[in-house]
Design a protein around this nucleic acid. Structure first.
Lengths: 203, 203, 203, 203
DNA sequence: GATGAATGAGAGTTCATTCAT
DNA sequence: CATGAATGAACTCTCATTCAT
């Protein structure tokens, strides 16, 4: 449900056009980078005229926001699926999903993420929040309410670090060990949260 | 010490000009954002002509890189100072320094950070690495070598999360509780690393 | 057929735009000179926006090259026509064609010629070469091969001198007498070449 | 005696400064081309400040004109010397002098020549004229007056062709054969002029 | 609906020249 | 006399967007 879409693409042809535009955008971002991503180039690569492009998207920003939306939605669904299939798996399956599921280069992800936040602000954040929190709430030992700040740490640490890792290829981090460290980081934090919560109860 | 500086400003007037340009850049980033940061606007705000600006900086990018350099250097010095004054303080003083020391809005910091990486690549990363690792190495119980990935997590987690926190003002995170959570996150991770290391030794 | 054209102008409006741009370029070169020939001024005079100009020509240079091409092509066709119509006319008709056919001021011609060479290099030279050589080859007494240097002299002398003559209006040269001298120069040189060739054969 | 010079350099140091500026100009023209020839670069290469440069030359143009003057003067003196030493040598020694004496790349020569004409107009032409005509007048069989156009052809043909030859390195012309052709061209033209003059007398 | 030629504000950048020191 | 920091008009070129066809 793209918000800034002008035309609600009910017909197959319309949907194909929208898809072509988004695919072209993704491809250009991947192969030529953000700086070369112009609306003319998108329309050219998509095989539609620039006028048509503007019939489906109000402006350049709306295209990026729509793509970010798709990406975020895909990840949210993936995480939900994992929660249902492996309810006792802990943090690792979710972290694996985030590591594998985020398609596209770092730059692409950063660009899309930024566009999404610009377009939808808080909404995006809380969506992400909720999806990730679900992966944790079920564990009964955490059935205490933690503060906003702890929730923030839980929901953002992995995504932020993956972004940073991807942004710095010079570090030559390996996926396997990195996954282990992220799991260790999150699990030890969860344990610490539990300990703290128990102390509070004891008092 | 801007790298891409064209003219090495020996005289007082030159230094004042450079300062005015950097101050203007900072101010525009803060008040109008990255998109409005044009060289013409910078020179206007700095009270110098556009030609003068280009006598000190080879291009727009060089200005941002120089600013990022300053910022990074300031933080590095601050952390070093802390390490010397409070060698037994653990992670908290360093985290406090990062929270307070990073001046400017998120966007400003992001923009400057990105420019810095573009300009100096790996060098920047390892500098940051080293500075932060020092804050931890002294603790004898950590006198084991950890892998690249663990080092990455240690050095990036706090900075990444602070960036994210600042990028999402809608979450209305409070500095005090956030600081506590970051300390808990890092300290519990360090503890987990220690445990893991001891197990390895035991085997 | 401009080479560096971005958009292949199939429609009438496009062709009209290209024509307007070239006409404007010619006019500015003639009336204000090379130094005043800026892309903004061209677009202004052509009655199109600067953006439109850049949709048809990749850069300033491409405009000049396209004009040079047109000019050169026109002359080539004119000489060919003469060769067919007056096969026995000797050098004079060709020289007349060059004197009358080269429209535009000297500076214009120089600028266009230079741009053409920059854009197409040797190709241009050999085209010119061939066209002029044809005017001579038919004469059976010249059915000997002469060296590169002699060919160069034959093809360049007239054009160079016409350029020089035009560049120095202070000399107040008159077209009629100048034509006579050029014919004399070329014809006597051709005769000398013939003599030399015969001597060689004799040996 | 540069005309547009502001300061009449009577002192040795002044002369050295002027020399340094001209040398720098020549060097930049040769190694980096006309487009890179800026006053700032000249002053830098000359080892003087830009302010000093403007104390000796009124503007950029004046520097080029002064250089052209030097060049032209040097050639004129060379030709004069030849005429005195080899009065019976015909066209060849003069052509050799022109081929060897013109130092600097084509572009340099073109730039300087153009500047000279801009600065001094007709004067330059007639100077050249006279110098070259001297090389011919002595020959008694030419002791007839020829028209302006013939004089123009005599004085310009060699210089123009040398310029063209240098401008088109793709032709790979060789100095030896080219010299022969130029001599043949000029000598046969002179002979033709003689014949025509005699016919006129006969009538 | 689709097209794509046209738009034009505005970006980054250069460089001849001045003038306070 | 020399210096060189400062000037700013002018340049080339980009690209999101519109609208007549």
């Amino acid at each position: 449900m793209p918000e800034k879409t002008r035309r609600n693409p009910k017909q197959a042809r319309s949907q194909a056009t929208v898809d072509a535009i988004l695919e072209a955008t993704f491809h250009i971002l991947e192969t030529e980078g953000h700086a070369k991503l112009t609306t003319n180039r998108i329309s050219e690569r998509a095989g539609v005229s620039i006028g048509t492009l503007y019939q489906y998207f109000s402006d350049r920003e709306a295209i990026l926001a729509a793509m970010g939306e798709r990406e975020a939605e895909a990840i949210r669904q993936e995480i939900t699926r994992i929660m249902i299939e492996q309810p006792e798996g802990g943090a690792r399956p979710v972290i694996q999903a985030l590591m594998n599921g985020l398609q596209g280069s770092v730059e692409t992800r950063i660009v899309l993420g930024d566009a999404l936040i610009r377009a939808r602000g808080e909404q995006v954040i809380s969506d992400h929040h909720n999806a990730f929190l679900e992966s944790v709430k079920e564990r009964e030992e955490l059935s205490f309410s933690f503060g906003r700040e702890a929730a923030f740490v839980l929901t953002h640490t992995v995504v932020c670090l993956l972004r940073a890792a991807a942004a710095e290829p010079e570090l030559a981090l390996e996926a396997g060990p990195l996954e282990d460290e992220l799991v260790l980081l999150i699990e030890s934090y969860l344990a610490a949260l539990t300990v703290r919560a128990q102390k509070k109860v004891a008092n």
